[in-house]
Design a protein around this nucleic acid. Structure first.
Length: 595
RNA sequence: GCCCUUGUAGUUCAAUGGAUAGAACGGAAGUUUCCUAAACUUUAGAUUCGGGUUCGAUUCCCGGCGAGGGUACCA
């Protein structure tokens, strides 16, 4: 049993014996004692004052402290400051705690089995008309980390992606390529497929803007100009041809999308994310239409005179929501309903999590209600993992204004910076290992930078100030890991074991504090899942590492003469490394053996 | 207009209603005959404003101000 639990029980008993009233488990607030006070665990006794009728918190804390010292062997001594009871826990209790961490190779994580709940996580969800950018990076990293965290908590996870591969925006790229492409391909130009297609999307916009400007100079209002744009008319015509299944247009569509997918795959591979099942909107939107028709028949939706189909959500405090346009074509919501149906057919889903930006909060509120009405068991409880936007110092990224931060460029730049940093420190050579370390460290810096922030909050990224490699960063953590591994290698060479934990070792406060931190990893992993927050793990690992670095600086391991202390420190270090590796793994961040 | 989110050092981020609001970067000053100095130590510096609830509020409630997002035929 963990020390906290044991103490909490003893505290409950103590209060009950002393005051004939027993607090509930959740009323026992035990926390790590702050650095400036003596002790390891602190109990806040304020909540007990009213129920016990004791006026003076110090009096209650002192009485309870005495009781614990007399009745709970793990409590060595105590002190009271204001309403806080600081408890000092005996060394052998700490050693026992470290041993329970040490003897569990997969400490902190649970393995799912065939009876575990099935959780589907949708993330990434790109459009096929442009390459992935910084916003997608946050989405991908959060989605992947969340999948790892859910798995570590004993869920069966299916990672999924819905690719928006059809629609007017795709037609814009296709039209531009047809008009101005001269048959350019990724092979002929050497461009990555998604970037090539993205360039034509930008080209469309450029020509379109020029056309509008010319029309407005000719005396039209902006609205009139947009309505009479030939380019836009052609794009719309292309979309109709696509929907009608025109062979030539479909072939062009397939070809260009294939280029994009090849590019995406490369980006995903570099980022280290992946999917178990990919859905395409071109395959799901038809299902959505069918489902809406079904809803129409059941009276869940209604049709207006112009033929458009709506859902009345005023009873839920929302508005009326469009589900099919007057021309019968589907909208975003329709497609998401269709995708939900296919997924439900494919998997026995218990929980569905959508990793989508917070600008779509309203959409998912509506989707949840609609899916529920349409009879999806998990519709009501679907989770919209709503994360904040990544903003640049000058505001939101706008792809049309060229202020996007490209995902491939950013990853490459990070890896390059890692290589340069390593060179400046005189650590790099031309070996493959050096290149691999640069990759791990560069991506680690990027991933940690994004994941350490509370996902719900908007965050700022300044491309001019490159991401740090010192301080609260991925490389800081990776470096500590590499240093521990180096010590363990040397210990191994010297014939020292990091496997056996000795008994009766005197412990210093830094060591106790480290054990205490290690022991809370399993709680952190659970909390990260409950709160849907990889940031909780990131911040935990950082604190652990900071503490370890202080220990490493203040005490010797290999040079320690007391053999029992030396073995203990090796075991402690090995377990810190184990937890770093595990925690970083949950964030999708690799750790190097040396750097 | 209406709805949602948000406001913490110069900057980027922390803080289950609990002790003197923590870090990092940047600023100032230090630590290497010693297991990897991508480290460690010291130092200056912050809760948008006004009320309320509470023994106790960055946290919960009300109001003002600021920022972002959404708002029925874009996704």
């Amino acid at each position: 049993m963990k020390i906290e639990q044991k103490l909490a029980q003893a505290i409950q008993n103590g209060i009950s014996v002393l005051y004939r009233w027993q607090p509930a488990t959740e009323q026992v607030q035990l926390s790590k004692t702050r650095r400036e006070f003596e002790g390891h665990l602190t109990l806040n006794v304020f909540p007990f004052l009213k129920p016990t009728g004791v006026r003076n918190p110090q009096e209650l804390a002192t009485a309870l402290g005495n009781y614990l010292v007399d009745n709970e062997p793990a409590v060595e001594k105590y002190n009271v400051i204001k309403g806080f009871l600081n408890l000092t826990v005996a060394s052998d209790a700490w050693l026992g705690l470290l041993n329970s961490v040490h003897t569990d190779p997969s400490y902190g994580t649970k393995s799912p089995d065939e009876n575990s709940p099935l959780v589907m996580i949708e993330y990434s969800s790109p459009n096929t008309n442009k390459p992935l950018h910084l916003g997608h990076i946050r989405n991908n990293l959060l989605g992947y980390a969340l999948a790892e965290i859910m798995t570590a908590n004993g869920n069966r996870v299916v990672k999924t992606n819905i690719v928006n591969d059809r629609g007017i925006h795709i037609c814009k790229s296709m039209l531009a390529w047809q008009k101005w492409g001269n048959g350019e391909t990724p092979q002929s130009s050497g461009k990555k497929g998604d970037h090539l297609v993205g360039d034509y999307y930008v080209a469309f916009d450029k020509h379109y803007k020029a056309e509008i400007k010319a029309l407005m100079e000719g005396g039209l209002t902006q609205e009139e100009a947009e309505a009479s744009s030939e380019l836009m008319k052609e794009a719309r015509a292309m979309l109709r041809q696509w929907e009608a299944g025109d062979a030539e247009i479909r072939a062009l569509w397939s070809m260009m999308n294939a280029w994009v997918y090849e590019g995406f795959d490369e980006t995903y591979r570099k980022m280290g994310v992946g999917f178990d099942k990919i859905y395409y909107e071109s395959e799901t939107y038809i299902e959505g239409k069918a489902k809406v028709e079904e809803g129409l028949a059941k009276g869940i939706c209604y049709q207006k005179e112009d033929g458009s189909v709506w859902a009345d959500l005023t009873a839920e405090g929302l508005d009326h929501k469009l589900l099919l346009r007057s021309d019968g074509t589907s909208v975003y919501m329709t497609q998401d309903i269709g995708t939900a149906k296919l997924r439900y057919d494919d998997f026995p889903i218990n929980h569905m999590i959508y990793v989508v930006g917070n600008e779509q909060n309203y959409h998912f509120q509506v989707l949840s209600i609609l899916l529920d009405k349409l009879g999806f068991a998990w519709g009501k409880d679907l989770v919209h993992f709503s994360y904040g936007m990544v903003e640049l110092p000058e505001g939101k990224m706008k792809s049309r204004e060229g202020t996007v931060v490209d995902a491939d460029d950013l990853m490459d730049a990070m890896i390059e910076t890692a290589r340069e940093t390593s060179q400046e420190l005189g650590k790099s050579d031309d070996s493959e290992e050096t290149a691999e370390i640069a990759r791990i460290v560069g991506l680690g810096a990027l991933k940690y930078f994004i994941l350490k922030v509370d996902p719900r909050k908007n965050m700022t990224f300044n491309p001019k100030e490159s991401i740090d490699f010192n301080g609260n960063t991925g490389p800081f953590i990776q470096y500590t890991y590499a240093r521990i591994r180096s010590v363990l290698r040397k210990a191994d060479e010297a014939g020292l074991s990091a496997a056996i934990l000795p008994k009766d070792v005197p412990l210093n406060e830094k060591e106790i504090s480290l054990i205490q931190s290690l022991a809370s990893y399993d709680v952190i992993v659970r909390q990260a899942a409950d709160d849907y927050s990889p940031a909780i793990i990131a911040n935990y690992i950082y604190e652990l590492v900071k503490e370890y670095n202080q220990f490493y600086h203040d005490f010797s391991i290999l040079r320690e003469e007391n053999k029992a202390v030396q073995s203990f420190r090796l075991v402690l270090s090995a377990n810190v490394a184990k937890v770093i590796r595990s925690g970083m793994g949950l964030l999708g961040i690799e750790v190097p053996e040396r750097m």
